[in-house]
Every structure is written in C-alpha cells, then in structure tokens.
C-alpha cells in the first residue's frame, strides 16, 4: 500500500472512530440518572410546564429522531444551554478549553524539553550512577498520581514556603486584560500557572525520558556513531548533533499521543489547583447533573485525543520512510 492509500484509509478510520465516539456519548448521556427536568421542578414547575420543557428539549421524540437531531447539533457546534449557568454551553466551554490548553501545553513543553535532554544524557552515560539514579527518579515520578504530586507541591511551595498562590488562575479583583498577551502573559497569571504546570511536567516527564534513553542506546550502537567518533569530532557534537537527533523520531509520535492523554490528567490537576479549565468544569457538571455542559466537555476531550492519535500516525509515516503501511 502506498502512502496516499494509507492516508486515505487512515482518514476513513478517523471518521469511523468519531462516529463511534459520538454514538457512545449519545448512549451514555441518555442513560444518565435523573431526568434533566428534575432541576427545574425544584424551581416550582407545574406538570404542564414540565411537559413543555421536555418537548422543548425534544425528549418526547422517538430515539432515532433524537439521535439525528443530536448529530445535527454537535456538527453545528450547538451544545445547548447549561442548566447551571443558564448560558449557551459553547460560550462557557471555549473559555475553559483555552485555559486548559495553556496549562497542559506549558506542562507538556516543559516535560518534553527536560525529558529529551535528560534521557539523552542518561543514554550517553549508560551504566553510570547518574543513569541508575535517573531511572529510579523517573519511575517514582511516574508512580505518583497527578493529584498526589500536586498536593506535595502545594504543601511545600504554597502552604509552607508561601512562594506561590494555592489556587485559581489569577488574584481575585485582578485586572482582566483584553488581549491574549494581557490575559496569559501577566506576572500574576504566571505565578498562578507555575505550580499546576510543574505538577503536569513532573508526571509527564517519565515517558519521554525513558523512551529517549532507550532509543539513544539503539542509536549509539549504530556504526555511524563509531565513524563520527573516529573522525575526531568532539563528544558533545556527536551526542547532540548525531546521536540525539536520530533518537528523537519516536518521541514525536509519543508526544502527540501524550497531548491527548493529558486531557484526562487535566481533570485531576485542575481540581487540585482550582484551575478554571475544562476538566474541573466537567467534574462540576457531572456532580450537578448539568448534562449539556458535561457532554460538551467530554466531547471536546475525546476529539482532542482522537485527532492527536491521527496526527501521531501521520507524522510517524512522514518522518520515517522505512515504515511499512500495514
């Protein structure tokens, strides 16, 4: 199979996966306990008003009609109204999504920069004390759930030393700037960002470090490294320019997948630090039976995962021409 056919097939697969995910969502959220109108009954709704409300939401229609209607709404980005905020879900979720992207993006960039460097050095100095110690440290970091790393950092840097704020995204009463830079570039924001981003970075550090180390070991066994060394190039040049560069390939793929997986991690980290992102919003929405909001958050997270897996597959075949398209 050629590259073109592979890509076409992969796109088809993407569509099927999206459809399946979307059907899963429909089934799950139709099974949710408690009728969506139960919230309004508490507001003193008469049975007639309640029925009218059900009709408004289209819940009196047969299931297949609801399914088609639901598909149409999702495709047009219409997620309905939040029960709690009484605002369109899309307006709420876009802001939250941006906050999550900024937090998890920062965490992942730090994790991969440190992980790649650290892993390359570990592979280079194999059998050293540094390597053995490094493996233990990365395994310990990997064994810690996100919330636990967050709590430790919180206890040390926020409660004990008092260097960083313990929750939120900005000091209450702080100026809400208009532009992107004013919003996400202010010193106050960065101080709030530091601990949650560091938490994510520590948790996601293990994968690139261990992977970089093992691919480095493979590459270092290759003949061309011996040749470069024999040419009399300085060690540093061989390490960074030749060995590390050739080891980075598998990392790119894993990075795309990790970005998707970080969506799940955001749920926990945002709860620990009270970060107003999508993960925390989803937990709140599920707890308050705010289905439209919970579903939109879940849909967006799943979409990021699916698209990232797709990108991972494509970059892999693009970067490594030796890959067989099976």
């Amino acid at each position: 199979m050629g590259l073109r056919a592979y890509v076409a097939r992969r796109i088809l697969q993407l569509i099927v996966t999206f459809w399946a995910f979307f059907t899963l969502l429909f089934v799950l959220f139709r099974m949710m306990p408690g009728d969506p109108t139960s919230m309004f009954i508490m507001d003193g709704m008469t049975p007639e008003q309640r029925e009218q409300r059900i009709a408004e939401l289209g819940l009196d229609q047969p299931l297949y009609v609801q399914y088609v209607e639901y598909a149409r709404q999702l495709l047009t980005g219409d997620f309905g109204q939040s029960f709690i905020y009484r605002d369109p879900v899309i307006d709420i979720i876009v802001v939250r999504f941006m906050n999550t992207i900024v937090l998890m993006g920062t965490a992942l960039v730090i994790a991969y920069l440190i992980g790649i460097t650290f892993g390359a050095i570990m592979g280079w100095w194999r059998d050293s004390r540094f390597e053995r110690g490094g493996i233990v440290v990365t395994l310990i970091a990997r064994s810690s759930p996100e919330f636990w790393v967050g709590i430790v950092l919180l206890s040390v840097f926020a409660f004990w030393l008092g260097w960083f704020p313990s929750s939120g995204m900005r000091t209450t009463g702080g100026e809400l700037g208009g532009g992107f830079v004013a919003r996400y570039g202010s010193a106050d924001f960065l101080r709030h960002l530091f601990l949650p981003a560091l938490t994510g970075a520590i948790v996601y550090l293990a994968t690139p470090t261990l992977l970089m180390r093992s691919t480095m070991l493979d590459v270092l066994n290759a003949d061309f490294i011996e040749i470069k060394k024999a040419e009399g190039l300085p060690e540093r040049t061989v390490l960074y320019k030749h060995a590390a560069r050739n080891s980075i390939l598998p990392i790119v793929t894993v990075m795309a997948i990790a970005t998707g997986a970080a969506m799940g991690g955001s749920v926990v980290i945002e709860t620990v630090f009270n970060w107003p992102g999508m993960g925390r919003e989803m937990v709140n929405a599920v707890n308050n039976n705010d289905y439209p909001l919970a579903m939109a958050a879940f849909f967006l997270m799943g979409s990021v995962v699916i698209i990232m897996n797709f990108i991972a597959d494509l970059t892999y075949v693009y970067l490594d021409p030796r890959v067989e398209y099976e």
């Binding site: 995910f21 937990v283 919970a294 997270m301 799943g302």
Partner: peptide, 18 residues
C-alpha cells in the same frame, strides 16, 4: 482503535456517575 479514542478518566467519571 475506537477505545484508544476515549479519554480514560473522563470516561470513567461519566460511567461511574451513570
């Protein structure tokens, strides 16, 4: 592949809520 497209923790939260 489809299961790989489902985010782990959010899925578990929704399922346990149901």
């Amino acid at each position: 592949d489809i299961v790989y497209g489902v985010p782990f923790l959010p899925f578990a939260i929704v399922l346990v809520a149901i």
